[in-house]
Design a protein around this nucleic acid. Structure first.
Lengths: 122, 122
DNA sequence: GTAAGTAGTTACCAATAGGTAATTAGTTGC
DNA sequence: GCAACTAATTACCTATTGGTAACTACTTAC
């Protein structure tokens, strides 16, 4: 029973993978955060917040915790006066390269196509 | 004023693209839907529902409308008796190939890494 | 002592996402 | 007529997301 799926195992595995990826990157802010860290290397908490327009400290804090829990971001407390905290991608986070690039390219292409289409119909 | 960003324009454009992509694929179900259509070609409404475990018709309907509105999925009413409706990816939807592949690969790799790590610590 | 900067946390609220169950409306087969 | 299929829609409810604003706690500069 429950063998209605005609999708092959490899397809199901792929879809599972896509879903996992999406879960880890879910929400409004994880992508901009990862993007900023990906393109810039390291950031302190407030600095990161300032570079991501519109994010509240509460949300930034929560998102960073999520990302840290999933081993995509590393948090380092620097024993400076005043104390500072640095965030950076882990190797696992940096391994998102292809995903980030693919999504970035597709998104910009899509935007162009939508604009072109909008102009056509105007 | 408001020039706090040290991120280059090309980075910001990339992040915008990633965000656009993610918005279009947002929610719990769009990825499994696109995945099924991507790996299987065409599906009728109920068939698609049956292949995506746990989705309610209301939600499937809404997600398909979203995808159709964004030109990623094409809906075709077949004038058969009983009437059937076919859903398939548009060329624009199929152009998600690289994104789908990148996310699928990264997700399965991540899953393996997490499993390996869990075994190490057991 | 006061302002400003570090990194957050807390309480509260509103909007959205998504789930359940029933219903609509039409056709086919028995 | 009645069940079962097609493709949805509707009403209702709950949980999660994310936003605002204020607050903690500690340090440095003036």
């Amino acid at each position: 029973m429950a063998e209605k799926s005609k999708l092959s195992d490899s397809c199901l595995r792929s879809i599972q993978g896509i879903r996992d990826t999406q879960d880890l990157l879910s929400g409004k802010w994880k992508i901009p955060i990862i993007g900023a860290l990906y393109f810039n290397g390291k950031f302190r908490f407030m600095d990161l917040g300032r570079h991501i327009e519109g994010i509240a400290p509460k949300v930034l804090s929560k998102e960073l915790k999520d990302l840290e829990m999933n081993h995509l971001v590393k948090r380092t407390v620097k024993d400076t006066m005043p104390i500072t905290v640095e965030y950076e991608l882990t190797p696992q986070g940096r391994s998102l390269k292809k995903v980030i690039e693919a999504m970035g390219e597709w998104g910009t292409d899509y935007r162009k196509a939508v604009l072109a289409n909008a102009l056509e119909n105007s």
